[in-house]
Amino acid sequence: MSRQASRDTAPEVAVRRLLHAKGYRYRLNVRVPDMPRRTIDIAFTRARVAVFLDGCFWHGCPQHATQPKANAAWWRTKLDRNIARDLETNEHLAESGWIVLRFWEHEAPDRVARRVASTVARQRRAKRQRSDEGER
Rank of each mutant, 00 (worst) to 15 (best):
E88F: 08
L87H: 11
N71H: 13
N71E: 06
V112P: 06
I40A: 03
F44G: 06
A94F: 02
S2F: 11
F52Y: 12
V116M: 10
I99H: 13
S118V: 08
V100E: 11
A113Y: 04
Q4I: 15
T66V: 08
D41C: 07
L101R: 06
L19F: 11
P36N: 02
F57I: 08
P33W: 04
C56W: 08
L101K: 08
Y26L: 02
Q4F: 15
D8E: 12
R114W: 01
T119P: 00
S96H: 12
Y24E: 10
T119F: 00
Q129C: 07
E12K: 02
A94N: 08
P68Y: 02
K22T: 05
R136Y: 06
Q4H: 10
K78I: 02
A94G: 07
D132G: 06
N71C: 05
R37S: 14
Y26C: 03
R31A: 15
Q63Y: 09
E135M: 06
R37A: 14
A5W: 04
A121Y: 04
E91V: 13
A70L: 09
A14N: 03
V51Q: 08
A14C: 03
A5R: 14
K127S: 10
N90Q: 14
D132P: 01
N71M: 04
V30D: 04
G60D: 00
P109E: 00
D80G: 12
R37C: 06
E105W: 10
A14L: 03
V13R: 14
Y24P: 00
R115V: 00
W104E: 00
R17P: 01
E105P: 01
G23P: 06
A113K: 03
H20S: 14
T39F: 09
I99W: 08
R27W: 13
R3S: 12
A50I: 03
R114S: 15
G60N: 01
A94R: 12
M35G: 04
H59R: 08
N71G: 05
L19N: 12
W74N: 11
P68E: 00
D41N: 10
R125T: 13
A126V: 12
W98G: 04
L79W: 02
W74Y: 15
D34F: 13
V49K: 00
H59W: 07
L79P: 03
E105L: 09
E105H: 05
N82W: 04
E107P: 07
A47L: 06
